[in-house]
Computed example of a mutant assay.
Amino acid sequence: MAILRKDSVPVTEGVSGYPDPFDLGRGFLSYRHLTEAGGLTQFGIAVETLQPGRQSSQQHWEEHEDEFLYLLEGALTVVEDETETVIHPGDACCWKAGVPVAHVLRNDSDHPATYLIAGSRLPHNVTHYRGIDLVGTPWGYTHLDGTPYPTKGETE
């Protein structure tokens, strides 16, 4: 058993792994990866803080991974396809694997928003990104036609 005391898990600065031109840069969010610190491997849970004026990811849906969010502090705009919903502390979101509802979190406020985020950790998952030429596969990012994007540091 692992007891994780408040603030015992280090904060990690978020760094986008998306290929250009979809890269979100760094510093848009920070997180404490709780399950990783506890040695768990079958699912992932983190406490994330999304900075004002930023978005959490590219708008996406997962083929094989469930995702869950519980808002702790602040306010978030949850974008699901074209629908925008503002959520507040105590509100939760569930995205079922295989349901093609593309979602992204946006912090439209002047204050950081902190939430608990949970998901499966399935190595065979495929992530679809809405409206852009990007697919996340177990082997890396590809264009919609299956052509791989270069890894960071390479050129096309």
Rank of each mutant, 00 (worst) to 15 (best):
M1H: 15
M1G: 15
A2N: 14
A2Y: 10
A2E: 14
I3C: 09
L4Y: 08
R5H: 14
K6H: 13
D7H: 14
V9M: 12
G14D: 02
G14E: 01
G14W: 01
S16K: 06
S16Q: 05
G17Q: 06
Y18L: 02
Y18F: 11
D23Q: 07
D23H: 08
D23N: 15
L24K: 08
G25K: 11
H33W: 15
H33I: 08
L34W: 04
E36I: 01
A37M: 10
G38K: 02
G39A: 05
F43G: 07
G44N: 11
G44L: 11
I45P: 03
A46W: 02
A46P: 00
V47D: 07
E48P: 01
E48G: 10
P52G: 01
S56Y: 09
S57H: 11
W61R: 02
W61M: 12
W61E: 10
E62C: 10
E65Q: 11
E67G: 09
F68Y: 13
F68T: 09
L69V: 02
L72P: 09
E73W: 08
G74M: 02
V78I: 14
E80C: 14
E80I: 14
E80Q: 14
T85Y: 08
H88C: 05
P89Y: 08
A92D: 07
C93N: 12
W95G: 08
P100E: 14
L105G: 07
R106S: 10
R106E: 00
R106W: 12
R106G: 01
N107V: 05
D108V: 02
D108C: 02
D108T: 15
S109Y: 04
H111G: 04
H111S: 15
P112K: 00
P112C: 04
A113V: 09
A113M: 02
T114E: 00
T114Y: 02
Y115P: 05
L116K: 00
L116P: 03
S120R: 10
R121Y: 09
R121P: 07
P123T: 11
H124D: 14
H124S: 13
N125I: 00
V126M: 06
H128R: 13
G131L: 05
D133F: 01
L134Y: 06
G140F: 03
Y141W: 00
Y141C: 00
Y141I: 04
H143I: 04
H143R: 10
L144C: 07
L144Q: 11
Y149E: 04
T151D: 07
K152Q: 13
K152V: 08
G153H: 04
G153Y: 01
G153N: 00
E154S: 13
T155D: 11
E156D: 14
E156C: 05
